[in-house]
């Protein structure tokens, strides 16, 4: 009986473990992000650089509908700067007293203005492919920021031998299926950073991912610092409970 059970158990464990070892798919390279770990926080200078990358490159095709211009205050932009950034875009408002819709400059309370009026227009403008909204992109993909960085830097001019990529598609090491409709979006020196940071392709990608991660988890800084304080409190409380428990139970030992 016992022998039978042990061998069944061994068979089950083996059968599960073997295919798990043979798991396929390219491993993502882990980058060091400033916000990793319980003490991690965003680097505001990096977020501002990332916002610059988004504004100059990504936002030509990708919307970020969940963010509002007022949220940029968290990156260290002043109220006037935020107003100026918002005012670069036009939004439709109305109806006014005459019953007409009208166009006005965006205000800090407005959401980020999308590059295309609707998904259909976005597809027409992008060879049939729909550029996804980036508001939650680092939370919405397995691998998170490492994956987005992998896609941004994973383009190869020539696919490996035996792989043919159709017209209008590009080879990418990180993208599932390796065939992506987005052209390589960034290259060295594509942006000029005001703070003098050297704009290598990798640097641009990292800054962009940092900004996107902030867009997906704007609460992260507060979450981490509140978490440390809360856990310290709970830890002390638990130690006290344990001491009290030992004391109350002393006469039962």
């Amino acid at each position: 009986m016992r022998k039978f059970l042990t061998s069944t158990f061994a068979a089950v464990v083996l059968a599960v473990a073997v295919p798990a070892l043979a798991d396929e798919g390219p491993a993502l390279e882990h980058q060091s992000w400033s916000w990793h770990g319980p003490f991690g926080q965003y680097d505001k200078a990096q977020l501002r650089r990332g916002f610059q990358v988004y504004r100059e490159i990504c936002s030509n095709c990708h919307a970020m509908k969940l963010l509002a211009y007022r949220n940029l205050a968290a990156l260290g932009f002043s109220e006037d700067e935020t107003k100026a950034i918002a005012a670069e875009k036009q939004v439709q408002d109305g109806p006014n007293d005459q019953g007409d819709m009208y166009s006005r400059p965006a205000r800090p309370s407005d959401r980020f203005v999308s590059p295309f009026p609707n998904d259909q227009a976005a597809r027409v403008g992008n060879n049939g492919a729909l550029p996804p909204d980036l508001s939650l992109i680092t939370k919405a993909r397995a691998g998170g920021p490492d994956y987005i960085y992998g896609v941004l830097t994973g383009f190869k001019d020539t696919p490996p031998e035996g792989v043919t990529i159709p017209d209008g598609m590009y080879y990418n090491t990180a993208f599932p299926g390796h065939q992506i409709a987005m052209p390589p979006p960034i290259s060295d020196e594509q942006v000029t950073y005001a703070d003098g940071t050297k704009a290598t392709k990798e640097q641009i990608a990292k800054d962009a991912v940092a900004f996107l991660n902030w867009g997906a988890e704007p609460e992260l800084d507060q979450r981490h610092s509140l978490g440390i304080k809360t856990l310290l409190f709970v830890f002390v409380m638990t130690v006290l409970f344990y001491a009290l428990k030992r004391r109350i139970w002393a006469d039962q030992h």
């Binding site: 978490g227 856990l231 409970f241 344990y242 109350i248």
Partner: peptide, 25 residues
């Protein structure tokens, strides 16, 4: 009370440590 009330409170403390670690981090 007090034997199992305090033991349960201690248990809640340990659970909170793990649960809140996930919630915050």
């Amino acid at each position: 009370h007090p034997y199992y009330t305090i033991k349960d409170l201690f248990g809640i403390g340990v659970l909170l440590l793990i649960y809140l670690s996930v919630v915050f981090f």
